[in-house]
Structure formats: structure tokens, C-alpha cells
Design a protein around this nucleic acid. Sequence first.
DNA 1: TCTGGGGTCCTAGGACCC
DNA 2: TCTGGGGTCCTAGGACCC
Length: 415
Amino acid sequence: MAIALIDCLHFYVSCERLFRPDLNGQPVVVLSNNDGCAVALSAEARALGLERGSAWFFHRHLRQVRLFSSNYVLYGDISARLMRFVAARVPNIEVYSIDEAFVTLPPTADPLTFIEALRLDIQQAIGIPVRIGLGSTKTQAKCACALIKSERPPNHCYVLGRDRALSQELRQVPVTAIWGIGPAAGRKLHATGVVNAAELAALDERWVLRNLTITGYRIQQELRGIAAIGMERAHALRQHVSCSRGFSRPISSLAELAEAVSSYAEVAIEKLRRHRLEATEILVYIATDPFRPAQRKYYNQARHALPGASSSLLVIIPICMQLLQSIYRSGYAYKKAGVLLLKLHPATHHQHELFTDHERDERLMAALDTIQQRFGRRRIFMASSGIPARRQWQTRAALRSPRFTTCWQELPEVF
DNA sequence: TCTGGGGTCCTAGGACCC
DNA sequence: TCTGGGGTCCTAGGACCC
């Protein structure tokens, strides 16, 4: 069975260009949270020698680059549109990330004709450029996309094994460019003289199992065309939700840390409720800046098991505050904090406990959800989270574009 | 003076049991 | 000098992904 991977080109940049055609042909960079490092680059920005993941601080002098803070609300909405559009045109889709999806093809379709047409339809209807690679497994589809990146066919599509022998094509894919082979596995493979995907496919299976574990073995099978990574993730229940952020400036007081942890917990709980899940364990951590070796370092975390599953602010936030107090030490310059909600269960399967008033909490939370939906997120918030406008530690996003598609006040204007 | 955030999966090793 | 063997469950941490 053939599997195609639809991969958006520098997706965040493409989203920004959607409402700003003047950015076409310009070097565009989208920055991570806190405007820290480059996470998406246009081809023109790459041509300037910039790389994904590099700290923007080092490139401040490049005044010609058009810079944006990440606008997750916009990107999420465009992604959802694109995925809906694709889902209506294929028998099966697995949304793999905000900018990638695996799909199976209709049985009658000629593969290349089909993906070429799909690519043009997406460009036309959604306005986002994509590349589409096709192979007999997910890993092969990934390799096909890697070949599009390196060989740049004009149609931005590639069907593995169509024009050349598979092994010849895989020879063009560096082993470190294979999906699932990271730096550690790459070093092991290089040490035995394996540098491309064809060589990994031909390697002794026992060696692969011993040195790259079951993960590497699956990749090898997939390269050979034997499916080992199923199309099933779409249904998988998530294991945990979290919210963690670096502060715009270091903070050392417990009061300010408490505001941050409380507001991060609010965000995590919002995600939890959106997925209709409940948590039974909570973890809070705080950390100093790992990039300042001169400073005193501190990292600590604490966790707490709830008596029953919950997605209530009134249950979870007080526990977060207790956990924070238990790990807080004065005299450190903290740079980051995080809240993780673990051991999740569907809210529909709630087990009732004797000593908590779950029904009352649920009624209150449902009312809060309604208010947030009607009047906007963060219109009401826990007092423990502090007044948003006064948060000195608030994550930076100084260069964020308008939320063109999801916020009435920020709709694009046409003159 | 800067270096993100949110996930998943796998393995090793400790605790515990019979 | 020797002091079992086999199993499960859980957690921390590494590796990897976008």
C-alpha cells in the first residue's frame, strides 16, 4: 500500500505570507517563544546562511530579515483548514504534526498524477505550498520528501521507486536525514561506515537490533518496504499535557514564581479540558538558566497524586502552589517553570470519590468554559495568576502578527 | 547579551513478589 | 566461600520528532 507524506514548506513563514503577499521573495524568519531562536525560515533567509534553531541574538545585525514572533493561534487555524481539506480527498489521513500529514491514496489513482493534483489543489484552496513524497511505508514517504528537498523537482512531488531502483534512490538519502535517526544513532552508524539509507537497509538485522534497538529495526524494515510503523496514531490517547515557559527576565521571589506557575497551570488545564481529559497526577518544576555557568544552578521538581481524576482549577492550582513551595529555595535567579498534568483519563469515564465534590467543581468549570468561549480566553482568571498586564516575567512575543482568522478585532482589512 | 515548547517511545534498573 | 530464579511494575532518563 502506498503512503504519501504531505509536508508544508516552512509552514510558519507560509502562514505569515498568506496575509502579507509583500513578504513573498523576502527573507522571513519566525522566532520561537520569547523571541529566542529561529524556528521557521524562508528560502531567502536560508540563503543568508541562517539555520533553524539558531539563537536570533547572534543575527540581530541582519536588518533586511522580516521578523515575526510565533503566532500559534493563526498557525493552528490554518493547519486545521488544510487538514480538513486533505481529509475530504483521501481515504485515510493521520495528522502527524501541525504541518505534516500521512495519507493513503484512493486505490484507483495513478500515484504521481494524484499527488501532483492534490498539491496544486492545496496551493489553490488554502494558499500554503507543500511537498508530497510517496513510498510504500511511512519512512519511505519521509525519504521521498527528503529527496524533494535535496533534488528540487519542479513539481515538488516524488514517488519512490518509480523512475530508478529503490536502492539507488535511498543511496541519495544521508543516514542522518532518515526519520527517527538522530545524532546518537547517526554516530553509531557512521562509526561502522554506514552513511546512507541504502546501506542501513542492507545492514545485518542482528547488528541493528543490538545497537539501535527495536526503533532502529523498525526503521530498517520500513526502508525495505515492510510496514512497521502503523497508521494509528490519530486515535491514540495522549499521555500528558504540559505548559512550560521561560521568563522574559529572571525572577527570584516566591510570589512571582507562584503567579507564573498558577498561570501555566491554567493553560495546561485549558488544554486538558479541550481534549476532555482528567489528570490524576501533577508535577511542577522550576529551574535556573542552564546557559549561565557562572550563576548558581538549581533544578527541582515535585509531584503529587490526586485522590481522584480532575480537570478543575480549584483542585489543581492549590496543589501546584503547595508543590512549588516545597521545591522553592530563595537566593536563585529562576528562568523557567513548568506544570505537567500526568496519568490522564477520559473525563467521560470519571470515577467518583467519597471525599471530593466533583459535581460542584464540574458545574463551576463548565460555567468558566462558557464564559471563556463567549467573551474570550483569559477574560477571567485565577487571582493567584496575577494581573496579566502587570506580569514582569511574561514571555516575550513583541513581533506577533495579527490573529487574522480567529479574532474579530484582528481581521485583515481590504482597501 | 542570547540560545523554545510540547510531545512519544524505549530501556535500564530498582522494588517487590513468590 | 556461598548465599535462587523468574516474573511484574514503576520510574528516570535518553533519544527522537516537529
